[in-house]
Design a protein around this nucleic acid. Sequence first.
DNA 1: GCCAACGTTGGC
DNA 2: GCCAACGTTGGC
Length: 140
Amino acid sequence: MNYWLVKSEPDVYGWHHFIEQGRAVWDGVRNYQARNNLKAMQLDDHVLFYHSVTNIGVVGLAKVAREAYPDPTVPDDLRWVVVELEPVMPLEKIVSLAQIKAEPLLANLSLIRQSRLSVMPVRPDEFELILKMGQSTSAM
DNA sequence: GCCAACGTTGGC
DNA sequence: GCCAACGTTGGC
């Protein structure tokens, strides 16, 4: 089991769109490093869903519903792939970027170190901590 | 709206 | 192969 974080602009494709559709084809990735991360995803891997730009933070938990296959939106360009994701549950409260930055245990997150990467691996301990921070009962 | 960081492109 | 110019992302 591997853990990941994907970014989306909520005005373009937010958590509520994801819930309404029940499944998302994660297309549009045009960065080699992010693509390599998509290719490394395995069925049922857990994925943190992050809102960039506005209402910034981790908002929910998803899982990999289909592993990487060629991006159908660019059939002539075999460099790019998509995965399919399904929602698992929303976090009880958003874990904001400010909270993440304030947490020393998360200082090595790719999110912090490589702010423009849109698909990135997350360590199991980091993943668990972010989920815990998203529980309303946690004392933050 | 601005700007820093970063990736890509193209001239040499 | 280097590097300047340019476009995009994303935080503030």
